[in-house]
Amino acid sequence: MKTFTHGYAYLFGCTLCVAMPSWGQATANLDELTTQWLALDKSTQKLKSDWQLEKQQLKLRIGLLTQENSQLSAQIKQEQHNQDQVSQQRQALLSAQTDIEQVVDAYRLALPSMLSRIQQLLAGLPPYLEHQLADDLNKLTEKSELTAQYQGIANIAKQVAKAENLIVVKQGMITLNGTPLLTEQLYLGHRHAWFITQDNATAGIGYPRADGWQWQPVDAEHDSIRQAIISAKNQVPGELLHLPVNLGAK
């Protein structure tokens, strides 16, 4: 019995000796796993924290990019609007330029006819006024610029219109039936005129015709014509005078 008991005890002791290293190894493994788990959990928490921070930064960046995109879209839209306006203005300028060129061409084409009418007009004016405007007409035909030519035409027209309301006394030569005469002349506007020689022997009227200015003698009213000329020269009102006129004068 003793031998059996000791043998059992020996075997049990051996069993404990064999089992002890396995438990220690498990404990070490458990500690290592725990350490790894804690490290992994710490890494996970750090990743979560980093992600939250990065998420906020990304959200902020997205907001900034969205705002920038909106601003860029607005700028692009404004640029397109500006380009449309520029295109419209360019088109309007081109259209206006075309209209101006057409008007200028029309005036250029009308100029020869206008000059011809001016020459016809001057031919029917009183001789003193025709002579006065002759230089302006010559300068007008010498000018090459269209604007200057039309300004010259306007200047002639103004002088003719002004003469319409003037009473003018002139002295000079006229030709009557092929004979030159030294006369004094009284002009009422540029449609009626009277003349008389120094000796009162010859007197008459003047008026425009289609072929130019016409002088025509009269048999009576010499004294009235002389008195009218004197009153006009002195610029004083005189008595009512009866003067001959050509009713067909225009």
Rank of each mutant, 00 (worst) to 15 (best):
A134C: 09
A74G: 01
A19W: 03
G24N: 06
P126F: 07
Q75I: 12
Q52Y: 03
Y128N: 04
G24Q: 11
T35Q: 13
M20N: 04
P127T: 04
N29C: 01
A106V: 07
W51C: 03
C17A: 15
A123E: 09
N69H: 05
S95T: 15
Q102D: 05
K46V: 00
S116T: 06
D136L: 12
V103N: 15
D99C: 03
Q71V: 01
A92F: 07
L60C: 02
T15N: 04
T98G: 06
L129F: 05
S43K: 08
D50H: 07
P112K: 08
Y107L: 12
Q36S: 12
S116E: 10
L133K: 00
W23G: 05
E68H: 08
A134Q: 14
W23Q: 10
P112E: 03
D135W: 01
Q83S: 14
K139Y: 11
L64D: 14
R90I: 06
S49F: 04
L121E: 04
D136W: 10
T66L: 05
L30E: 08
N69R: 02
K42A: 09
G124R: 08
T35K: 12
A92V: 01
S87R: 07
L40Y: 09
L140N: 08
S43P: 00
K48S: 06
L60W: 01
D105I: 01
L109W: 00
L115Y: 00
Q91F: 13
T35N: 12
S43T: 02
S22I: 10
R108L: 14
Q75V: 09
L58M: 11
K59Q: 07
H131R: 04
A96Y: 06
L33M: 15
S113F: 14
K59T: 08
L33Q: 15
T44F: 01
L30F: 08
T66R: 08
S70E: 15
L65F: 10
K139G: 14
I76F: 13
A110M: 11
A96C: 05
L60N: 09
L140Q: 05
R90K: 14
L115N: 03
L121F: 01
R117Y: 02
D50K: 11
V86G: 01
N138Y: 15
I118E: 01
L122D: 06
V103I: 15
Q56M: 09
T35F: 06
Y107W: 09
K139F: 11
D135Y: 04
D84R: 13
Q45A: 14
H81T: 09
W51T: 08
Q78W: 01
A134G: 08
